[in-house]
Each structure stands twice: as structure tokens, then as C-alpha cells.
């Protein structure tokens, strides 16, 4: 049931992923390319589906740094791929800085120096979003320090940040911006909470902050809590359906991939989380 992706949809996703990676290399240097995550390729896909633009997107076939001997398809000249690349660079840098401040990880500090130059460029271009990212990290730190016990409150900074990133911080407006924000907000919220659930064991051992551990100790998370996570998934789906109604032409593959991700990929993840919760998390 889980791996039900059409070949063209998978190819389409890979071309986005490679496109973002290539763009990072081109605009921000080689080092940040290794920080690329799946989410930012998804960001580029969603925006390419929903926001109208008049650039001619080209599909190119080239070898790349990670696969020097096999040519890969990738999209070029797509403004949203460029945007996702910048966001990825900002994000990774913010995260590394946070890791260094929080946990004094030497690896984070040294990685930061590699990322620095590229990060500065991205910060210059997207100063407002950088500011939002900083505020989100600060808010998160403050709430963790205060031992926040509300699931909604602790997930809000990250969710809000992702929501703002999906609306390109107010560049899109009207109904479209509302749906994009809803999609981003609940995606961010779900990701934060899903991480919190799967990290419970580790956080308990390391005595790190974890909202679920604070609330329920070592007991499994009750059913209602899982329903609130599912409500977030449901609002992702709702926003996505609204966006699809006005999607650009020629984006069937993108839509197919995202359908699969939102309805099936996230559901499978959620299901897995519940299984582990049921299977005696208390150990």
C-alpha cells in the first residue's frame, strides 16, 4: 500500500530534488548541498504547482557531484526551486547554530563554518524570513526553558515558520496565501509533533525537553492526542485540495506525487508512530 508511486511521479520528484541541490551548489557553494532535505524539494513542488509564473522551466540531464558517473534529470530555471534552495540554506544554518548553542556540539560548530559564506548570501536575499527563523528558534528555546506543557504552544513557532515559508512571507496574497499558510502551518506542526513522539525515548535518557514526556511521563500518549495530530493531517489535506483546484497546467506529476505524500506517506508515518506508542513505549 505504501509504495504506490507512478514512475513519472517519482522521476518528477527526483528532478525537483536534484534541481534544488544543483541550485544550492550554483548560488551558495558546494558545502551546503549536503544539508539538503526532502522537505525543501516538496516546498518547491507545492509552490510550482500553485503559483503562476511565466518562466520557461527546462529539464536538463547532467551528471552531478553526488552521482558523477550517471546523468540525472533535474529542473532548471524554476524560481521556486531557487527559493527552496535559499530556504534550505537558511534553515540548515539556523539549525546548526541552534545545535551549537543548545547542546554545544562541536560537529555543529565546525559545520557552521563551512556553511557560513553561503548562509550570508541567503540571509541578504531573504532578510525578513531569516528574521522570522531567528524569532522562531528563540521562541522555541524560551518555551522549552519554561517547560511548556501545551502541545499547541510548543509546536507553534516551528509551524508558523513553515507556514510563512510556504507563503514566501506574504509575497502571495488572498485565498492562495491562506491555503498555503494552512498547508505549511499544519505540515510544520505535524512534523514537530511526530518528531517529538519518536524522540521520546532518547529525550528521556538525555533528559532533554520533550512535551509528551512532560505531559505523560513514560506512559503512552492517549488516543485524543493522536487525534489532534490527525486533525493537522486533515487540515493539510483540506488546504491541498483547495490549492489543487487552481493548480497550474502541466503539473499532473507534481500533483500525483504530492497526493501520494499527503494522503499516504504521512498516513503511513502516523500509523507507524501509533504502533510504536502502543508497543510499550514505557520500556
Amino acid at each position: 500500500m505504501v509504495s504506490e508511486l507512478k514512475i513519472r511521479e517519482e522521476q518528477c520528484y527526483k528532478a525537483y530534488y536534484c534541481g534544488v541541490c544543483r541550485e544550492i551548489g550554483k548560488a551558495y557553494g558546494q558545502a551546503p548541498r549536503f544539508g539538503l532535505t526532502h522537505e525543501f524539494a516538496v516546498l518547491a513542488m507545492v509552490l510550482s504547482c500553485c503559483i503562476q509564473h511565466n518562466q520557461k522551466i527546462v529539464l536538463v540531464r547532467r551528471p552531478c557531484i553526488a552521482h558523477p558517473f550517471r546523468k540525472r534529470l533535474s529542473y532548471g530555471n524554476n524560481p521556486f526551486i531557487a527559493y527552496a534552495a535559499a530556504m534550505n540554506v537558511l534553515f540548515v544554518q539556523g539549525k546548526l547554530k541552534d545545535n551549537w548553542v543548545d547542546e554545544k556540539k562541536i560537529s555543529a560548530l565546525s559545520a557552521q563554518t563551512f556553511f557560513y559564506a553561503g548562509g550570508r548570501k541567503a540571509r541578504k536575499k531573504y532578510g525578513d524570513l531569516h528574521h522570522i527563523l531567528q524569532t522562531a528558534l528563540e521562541d522555541l528555546g524560551r518555551l522549552e526553558k519554561a517547560q511548556c506543557i501545551s502541545v499547541d504552544e510548543i509546536a507553534h513557532p516551528f509551524a508558523n515558520l513553515i507556514g510563512k515559508i510556504f507563503t514566501i512571507d506574504g509575497l502571495v496574497s488572498g485565498e492562495l496565501s491562506k491555503s498555503l499558510y494552512q498547508l505549511g502551518y499544519h505540515l510544520g506542526k505535524w512534523i514537530y509533533l511526530a518528531d517529538a513522539v519518536s524522540d521520546r525515548e532518547r529525550d528521556r535518557k538525555k533528559k532533554n525537553y520533550n512535551v509528551y514526556n512532560l505531559r505523560y511521563g513514560s506512559d503512552p500518549v492517549p488516543e485524543t492526542e493522536q487525534l489532534t495530530r490527525e486533525l493537522s493531517l486533515s487540515h493539510i489535506a483540506e488546504a491541498w485540495e483547495q490549492l489543487k483546484r487552481k493548480a497550474n497546467e502541466d503539473t499532473a506529476s507534481e500533483q500525483g506525487y504530492l497526493d501520494n505524500l499527503f494522503y499516504l506517506g504521512l498516513r503511513a508515518q502516523e500509523y507507524k508512530l501509533r504502533q510504536t506508542e502502543r508497543g510499550g513505549d514505557a520500556s
Binding site: M1, E230, L231, L233, S234, A237, L264, R267
Partner: peptide, 21 residues
């Protein structure tokens, strides 16, 4: 509202596990 998600998935042929959710 969770029905929205479950139905949306089911319409696409993604069968809900009976034990699921």
C-alpha cells in the same frame, strides 16, 4: 474533520486499515 482526511485518502484508492486511525 478527520473524516476529511480519511475520505480523501479512500477516494484515491488508499484503503484505510480497519485497525487504523
Amino acid at each position: 474533520h478527520t473524516q476529511y482526511y480519511r475520505n480523501g485518502g479512500a477516494q484515491r484508492g488508499y484503503q484505510a486499515n480497519t485497525d487504523d486511525l
